[in-house]
């Protein structure tokens, strides 16, 4: 409880770190902040070329099918693979200055979240231009699912960033894990393509219900099933509690082992 209060006291720091992250990233480049929109757009063009011209998949508008899942996946993947180093990378701050340690993972995840929301602007533009359109009726679910994904991502970032301080290999290991994880999550295919008997196993993956829900909202323009949402919320909250607990237990020793 005290920790939460203190994090709130340091909200200005979180805001400033997020701003530094987003603004500092493209400083010095000619197009600057515009890259935030340009990167996903170019990515989309590549996918469109590859999947509608060269390698035709059996799914209608496959590039959109992929893109709506890839955006939230990228958000999650960045949080895990890069975010796990967020304490280590700020070693200078951690060993020299006091502040609630949670600020670092929180601001990293928040910066990635803002990045994803900006990418959604591109996505919505593409959905409208391509004639696919959007269904505003199901957007209420969008906010819920963004929240759930953020809880999950933050929980795991807390967990892995704390572990990484004590075990440096974690970062490298995670970049492999996250690649495998992507193939085990219905990002490039739909759950229906998974053999029936393996499907329950797929739903043990906390990202499965989240990706399914995003695709429901943007691609199928329909409300996600309640069971999908509840499953996502359940696993998100569990990861958050686990990550928070591990972080809380280990944060006092960060400065000593770094």
């Amino acid at each position: 409880m005290n920790t939460l209060k203190e994090i709130w006291e340091y909200r200005t720091m979180i805001v400033n770190l997020v701003r530094r992250d987003l603004k500092g990233k493209y400083k010095g480049s000619v197009l600057g902040f515009f890259w935030t929109f340009l990167t996903p757009l170019l990515q989309l063009i590549v996918y469109t070329l590859v999947f509608s011209v060269i390698m035709r998949a059996g799914v209608e508008d496959y590039y959109l099918f992929l893109f709506v899942a890839l955006i939230p996946w990228t958000y999650f993947a960045n949080c895990i693979s890069v975010g796990s180093g967020c304490i280590m990378n700020q070693k200078n701050l951690v060993v020299k200055i006091y502040f609630p340690r949670e600020v670092l993972p929180i601001s990293y995840v928040a910066a990635q979240l803002v990045n994803m929301l900006l990418t959604f602007i591109v996505l919505i533009a593409v959905l409208l231009v391509s004639g696919k359109g959007i269904n505003l009726m199901v957007w209420g679910y969008l906010f819920i699912i963004i929240f759930v994904e953020t809880i999950l991502a933050l929980g795991l970032t807390l967990f892995f960033s704390a572990i990484t301080v004590f075990l440096r290999d974690m970062q490298y290991l995670l970049s492999i894990v996250i690649m495998a994880w992507q193939f085990m999550t219905p990002v490039m295919y739909s759950v229906d393509m998974v053999p029936e008997q393996l499907r329950p196993l797929f739903y043990l993956n906390p990202m499965t219900p989240i990706i399914v829900a995003y695709r429901d909202i943007f691609y199928y323009k329909q409300a996600p099933e309640l069971s999908t949402l509840l499953l996502g919320i359940g696993m998100g909250v569990f990861c958050m509690l686990l990550g928070g607990f591990v972080f809380e237990k280990s944060k006092k020793r960060f400065a000593e082992v770094m």
Partner: peptide, 24 residues
């Protein structure tokens, strides 16, 4: 602490001071 070389002195004041726990 936390100075970003590409950002202005003014912006860095905000970043640095917020790390010391100051509010906006």
């Amino acid at each position: 602490a936390g100075f970003h070389p590409d950002m202005s002195g003014r912006e860095n004041i905000y970043i640095n001071a917020s790390i010391f726990g100051l509010k906006k």
